[in-house]
Computed example of a mutant assay.
Amino acid sequence: DWLEAIIALPLNMFYNTGIATYIWVLTNRKPEHRKGCVQLIDATQWYKPLRKNLGKKNCELSEEDIRRIVDTFLRFEETEQSKIFPNAAFGYWKVTVERPLRLKGIDPEREYSAKEIKKLRETAERAEDAPPVIRKIHKSGTAADPLRGLFEATIHGKPRVVEYEPDTELRDTEQIPFLECSACHEPGYLPSAADQHTAIETFLRREVLPYAQDAWYDPESVKIGYEINFNRYFYKPKALRSLEEIRADLLAVQKEAEGLLEEILGGTNHE
């Protein structure tokens, strides 16, 4: 919990590049009121233009701009240019979602070896309505858990739990935010392993299973990442033009086109 704030600076602040630049404010002695939170400050519009460009550099921070940034940081308040988030708001789980390989002409009640599956991939035809390829039949007593790839099936008249071979062409990934965990909305709280499982499975049941009922994920494949996207938090959509403005423009273009047509026809008749 060392990150206090990130400040987005104006573009074209440096001589040889126009890339976006940021100031990261770090400390190992966070004040109590900042603990568990990160402040984002959008200072991209606070600058003084240069009279003459120096390479790609066309602006700089004036004393007034610097003071404005410092004051915004010290006030630690939500404004149009200052947003405050719990640490967990930037975290996510990257989850690989699998679906079974379905091939025509296979035996839906037998287990196929890796060698057999490789050959089937090369020779058999895929189809959505074909049976899934079984790669493992578990012993009796194994509990089913479809969301983790353990499916109930009837094998030679007996209920068993099986694993299907995943179809790499249908493999997908989901980026699931930490904020799927309700407790993560509290400053300083980071999800536990139990929170992770609950949040991921709740998300998949809501967003994936309604469209792919045979989907599953491997808990061992879950990766944790963080992303801070200023555009997401400070984007300001442009106001749409009114119908009156659009209509006026169309009428003006129509009038101009009619005038050009009259000139063309008039010139033709004169000849």
Rank of each mutant, 00 (worst) to 15 (best):
P210M: 11
C181M: 12
E220I: 00
I155H: 05
F85Q: 01
P49Q: 08
E207L: 06
Y47K: 05
E78Y: 11
Y233W: 12
F234A: 12
D172A: 14
T268S: 00
L204S: 03
D218A: 11
H270T: 06
D172G: 02
K119W: 13
F178G: 06
K35Q: 15
G225C: 12
R232M: 11
L3N: 04
R160M: 14
A5Y: 02
I224H: 06
I106R: 04
G225A: 12
D42M: 05
Q254N: 04
R75P: 00
G141H: 05
A43C: 05
R160G: 03
A143N: 11
L170N: 00
A124I: 01
G141E: 07
N58D: 14
E152A: 14
V25L: 11
P187D: 08
E64N: 14
A127I: 00
D195W: 07
L101S: 03
E186W: 04
R171Q: 08
K94Q: 15
T96Q: 07
E258T: 07
H185A: 15
Y211E: 13
P191D: 10
S221K: 10
V253W: 05
E207N: 08
P31R: 14
K158T: 14
P100F: 06
P191R: 03
K119L: 14
P100C: 10
E201F: 01
E63C: 03
L101Q: 04
V208W: 04
T198H: 05
V95H: 01
T202H: 12
